[in-house]
Amino acid sequence: MGTTLTATFETRREAEMTVERLVQEHGVERTDVFIAADGDENSAGKEQAGSDGDADQPGPEPRGDAPLHGSVSVSVDIEDDAKAAKVREAFTEFQADDVSEV
């Protein structure tokens, strides 16, 4: 029987880095990973990070329009106990909050 592991992240960058680690290095199927705002409003997290922040010169103008309305949630459906351990490790590596398992 499978399990779903869920965690929240302060920034979209942390959530995206977690997903990339799981898919590229640990063989988790991308179709088993879900990213969403942790609330009713669209959100890039609680803080700007990565491409949501200021751009370095030369480059595009700095951005200030990232929707910062709360955490970003990542859920992973997993069948394999070994991969579930890798999911937990990735959550920890990228500073996940509120990790839960169903």
Rank of each mutant, 00 (worst) to 15 (best):
Arg30Asp: 01
Val76Asp: 07
His26Asn: 02
Leu22Tyr: 03
Val102His: 10
Gln57Phe: 15
His26Thr: 00
Glu10Thr: 11
Ala90Val: 01
Gln95Trp: 13
Phe94Cys: 06
Ile78Glu: 12
Glu10Lys: 08
Met1Cys: 10
Ala55Arg: 15
Gln95Phe: 13
Thr31Ser: 12
Ser51Cys: 08
Glu89Met: 00
Lys86Met: 10
Glu89Lys: 05
Gly39Leu: 02
Val23Glu: 07
Pro62Asn: 03
Gly27Trp: 01
Glu25Lys: 15
Arg21Pro: 02
Thr3Phe: 10
Lys83Phe: 04
Glu14Pro: 04
Asp65Glu: 11
Ser51Leu: 11
Ser73Lys: 04
Phe34Gln: 06
Ala84Thr: 02
Gly70Glu: 06
Ala55Cys: 11
Ala96Arg: 00
Glu61Arg: 11
Gln95Gly: 11
Thr92Met: 09
His69Thr: 03
Asp81His: 04
Asp80Glu: 03
Thr6Leu: 09
His26Ile: 00
Gly27Ile: 02
Gly70Asp: 10
Phe34Ala: 07
Val99Lys: 02
Glu41Gln: 15
Asp81Arg: 05
Val28Phe: 09
Glu10Phe: 05
Glu79Cys: 06
Val28Ser: 10
Glu93Gly: 06
Met17Glu: 15
Asp40Cys: 10
Ala66Val: 05
Thr11Glu: 05
Thr11Ile: 06
Gly45Thr: 00
Ala90Gln: 02
Lys83Val: 14
Asp97Asn: 12
Glu25Met: 13
Asn42Ala: 13
Gly45Ile: 01
Ala85Ser: 09
His69Ser: 07
Glu25Asn: 15
Val33Gly: 02
Glu25His: 15
Asp81Lys: 08
Gly2Phe: 09
Asp65Phe: 06
Pro60Trp: 09
Val99Glu: 04
Ser73Ile: 01
Pro67Val: 03
Phe34Glu: 09
Ala90Tyr: 03
Ser43Trp: 03
Val74His: 01
